[in-house]
Structures are given as structure tokens and as C-alpha cells.
Design a binder for these strands. Structure first.
Lengths: 104, 104
DNA sequence: AAAAGTGGTAACCTTAAAGTAACAAATGAA
DNA sequence: TTCATTTGTTACTTTAAGGTTACCACTTTT
């Protein structure tokens, strides 16, 4: 009989749930420089399909990391930007980048 | 004609490649406390199958984050531990945990 | 009149990841 | 003699993720 009380709880997991998606970190990185339109993100994130980009953006938005602002123009214009919450992730991304740079 | 030169390079991605796997962070977290045998990890990582645990451990080992030490005993005994390289990730995991704690 | 431009969506297909179950190997214990 | 133990592996199936193509809406440009 296994003892389930041994299960480890790792709080870092919660953060990974937000940024662990296949393209999330690149998207956040792109938006960290400046707000971008859908098409601009699409060009800057290599080889992502529009479908998947839409999905990832929706998830980031649902998690409160980015905002979506739609202008009433034609052809349509939609701008994505980091929220304050999303911006608070930047030091973490910088830490990750620095760790890699230092250790390799 | 799309301009491919717009592709963003995000160094944090490289780090994510190491710890972004479905179970990597939990495994690292478990091993950060102390070295563990295969079965001990299996119990502490909720609902992971032996097959997938093996795969993830092999990848972590190939990336140099953990070490695998096999004792010549029967029944077999194998112990996994963080390498020095793997230990250097701990502050990052702590950062991730702290960010989540503070922001939610 | 038709095409371009933008930000999607819907339907469908393929690929990658994960799960399941059975088996192995050597020894000691029942 | 058979079972239990431990760390896997192998073969097979299921699920999730991602890709592909076609299409829409509305206006301006060719």
C-alpha cells in the first residue's frame, strides 16, 4: 500500500504552469520590448502557426500576463502588450537568460 | 516576402529547454532536498509512470543536471542526485516559487 | 471587378507525448 | 519451489498538441 503523503509540493510548478507552454517565453520576450500587433508577433516567433499563436495568446491573456486591445479599424488591428503582472515576470526571464549564459 | 531577420532570439528559451519538460521541475525539486532512489522519486512525483520517469531522468542526466549512481546489489539500487550544475538551478527555482507566492 | 490586407475561426490530419500492461534478471525469504 | 523486491525495457494504445488548408469580414487599392 503506497503512502500518498510522500507527494512533493513544488511551488515553482505554479509559475511553470504560466510560462511553460511551448511558445510562451518567446512571446513574452517579444512583448517585453514593446507592444505588438498579432502579425508582428507572428513574424518574430519563428515557425509558429497562426492557430497556435492565437491559442497561446488567449492563454496568456486568461492568465493575466498580457492584454489585448482591439481597434475598430479596417483591416483589423489588434495590439498585445504585457500587463503589469506580465512585466513582473521580466526579471525572472532575465535570470533564466543569465543563468544559461553563465553556465554554458 | 516575409523578412526572416525579424526572428527574435530569446536566451531564456535555452534554460526552458532544460527544465521545461512536463516533470523536470518537480523532479529537480525532489532531488534538491536529498539524493533519492528511483522508487523514492516515483512515489514523490504524483502520478508519473515509471516509463516517463525513466525518460525524464535520462534527459536530465544527458543535460548534466543530475547524476545516476548504480550499486551492484540485488534487488538493484540506483541513486539520483543533483550535479553541481543542477544545484546551480536551485536559486532559479526559488525565484520562481517566490514570484508565484508574491504575485498571487 | 478583383485583389490585398489583417486577425482570426473551423474542420481536418499528423505527430509527439504519455499511459498501460507484461516481462526481465538475480537473489533472499517464505 | 515460488514469491517478492527493484529498476528498468518493450510493445502497444490513447491522448494532447500542433500543423494545414480554406474561409470570413470590410475597406482600400489596382
Amino acid at each position: 500500500m503506497k503512502n500518498n503523503l510522500n507527494h512533493a509540493y513544488c511551488p515553482a510548478i505554479e509559475t511553470m504552469a504560466l510560462i511553460g507552454g511551448r511558445w510562451k517565453v518567446i512571446i513574452l520576450h517579444v512583448l517585453s520590448k514593446q507592444a505588438r500587433r498579432f502579425g508582428e508577433i507572428n513574424v518574430r516567433v519563428p515557425s509558429i502557426s497562426r492557430k497556435v499563436l492565437t491559442e497561446q495568446l488567449r492563454e496568456l491573456e486568461a492568465d493575466g500576463l498580457i492584454s489585448r486591445k482591439q481597434y475598430k479599424e479596417l483591416p483589423p488591428r489588434v495590439e498585445y502588450a504585457l500587463t503589469e503582472y506580465g512585466q513582473s515576470l521580466c526579471p525572472l526571464l532575465a535570470y533564466m537568460a543569465a543563468w544559461h549564459k553563465e553556465k554554458v
